[in-house]
Structure formats: C-alpha cells, structure tokens
Amino acid sequence: MKIAEIADKLGLEVVNEGQWEREAKCCYASDMLSDVLANGGEGCLWITRQSHPNIVAVAAIRGMAGIIITGGKQISPDTIEKAGQEQVMIFSTPKQTCELAGMLYMLLSNEVERG
C-alpha cells in the first residue's frame, strides 16, 4: 500500500515530507535502535517512540519506508533536519505504539489477503 494512503487512513501527521508514492510492504515496531539496525526490514514502516536524530540514519541504512513516532512526542529540530537531508519520511501520531501497530498491521495484512 502506498504511504500516502496509509497516512490518510491512519490520520498521521506529516513531520518530514518524502516519497509519498513509495509502497510500504511491512511494519516493524521497536524502540531499540540496535534491534532495528539488525532486524528492520527494507520497505517497512517503523513505529517507535524514539525521536533521537539517530533514528533517521537507522531508517536510511535499512532502506525503510518511513518512521512513525507514537505518543505525540515532541520531535527535535535536529531530527527533522537530518530527515530532510536523508529524505526519510517521518510521521507523528498521538496514538500509542500498540494501537497504531495494530491498525497498521490490519491495513497491510488485508491488502495481502486481497492479493
């Protein structure tokens, strides 16, 4: 499913613009960046509460489709600036990780079932 459609359906707030037309194939939820560096899948949307600038590099290294920061956290200008440089899409949501992950998982798995 295209990122634009996902963002619309989940009511995500855009923090940093990027490739709206890119397909998100999967999702990954983790707050340990070492874990995401090791296991984050290419083309996945990554759900996290971390907002440290390092998230941008981790998403870029793993070729992830974008980052969704949960819990309505304030995101530092440093993080947003790095995301601009690396062209990594960042979204924000007031929802907590579990709820958002459930909604995103349903969206993506329904699409797989529909073929």
Partner: peptide
C-alpha cells in the same frame, strides 16, 4: 548508547 541508539551520534 549502542543498544538504544544503534551507534554513537
């Protein structure tokens, strides 16, 4: 730092 941030900023 390594576990939480993946690498040193």
């Amino acid at each position: 730092v390594l576990s939480q941030l993946g690498f040193f900023p």
